[in-house]
Write a protein that binds this DNA or RNA. Structure first.
Lengths: 139, 139
DNA sequence: AGTATTTTGCAACAAAGTTGCATTCTTTAT
DNA sequence: ATAAAGAATGCAACTTTGTTGCAAAATACT
């Protein structure tokens, strides 16, 4: 059983061509992808609607997580094994957005520091996005 | 000269009815607004296009800043006086998104802690969005 | 007040996202 | 291996969101 197949089965999703393809795309890159990126890579293979629904499903199952942006183009990245296996999502790493190449990267090794909220606030999730120049673009 | 008028003049923008109205809307609320929120509050007074352009202008002048989201609806909030007066933007506070009332709040008193990036990465901006339950919704 | 410049509204368009339904594909149980 | 049940897909139509060019109107400057 292939890697993508076992990811799908572990999330009790049926194994379909489009889901395998989209998962393959995520596995093949080291950065986060916007809906549009995936649409381009799927070329004319799959319907736009299918891609929307597949990403939605993957999100719900915790196979991917989304990264907040300021450009109205939410990006998605594969969750690490811990998330997928436990089904419980703990996306506690920093995301990096490179201004030069435009890539969005998961800095898995950089943990988000905790902050103390004012009295009365209850924290559920925390997200940190850093922008700048990435390793590959810096000379 | 009214408060909104002086904000506009300080940014060397001409004072127009739509700009005053939109600034008034921001001043009247304590939370961040999406484009759509503003469109609703402006009712049929101003054209959709004008609102897009006004928000764009305010962003460029540093009168408002935008807050990243995971729902393809970037939100905007007024910058504090420091940003507006210096023209230089330093949006170093944490943003809070309440799951119950849906409001996005600037926690001006909570500074974003710095993180150490891996070698080779250069940081330019940093954003932190915390979600959970806000003071007003928590009982 | 009169002119130059900027902003606005309109129209038309492009892109992004959603919904219902019939068809096709997967799964499950014989 | 196959048939029935259930789930996913593609299509069409539609809604929402965002963009662009240009003429008309408003604002700023002298």
């Amino acid at each position: 059983m292939s890697r993508v197949e076992s990811i799908l089965r572990n999330s009790s999703l049926s194994v379909t061509a489009s889901r395998k393809k989209i998962l393959d795309i995520f596995l093949a890159v080291d950065n986060a992808l916007a809906h549009q990126d995936i649409e381009q890579k799927c070329a004319d293979e799959y319907d736009r609607v299918t891609i929307y629904r597949t990403l939605q499903t993957f999100l719900e199952k915790g196979i991917i997580h989304n990264i907040p942006t300021t450009d109205n183009a939410v990006r998605y990245a594969l969750c690490n094994d811990a998330c997928i296996n436990t089904g419980h999502h703990h996306d506690n790493h920093v995301h990096f957005l490179c201004d030069e190449c435009g890539k969005t990267l998961c800095l898995d090794e950089v943990m988000i520091p905790t902050v103390k909220l004012p009295a009365g606030y209850a924290m559920k999730e925390i997200n940190m996005v850093v922008s700048g120049t990435c390793k590959s673009c810096k000379k």
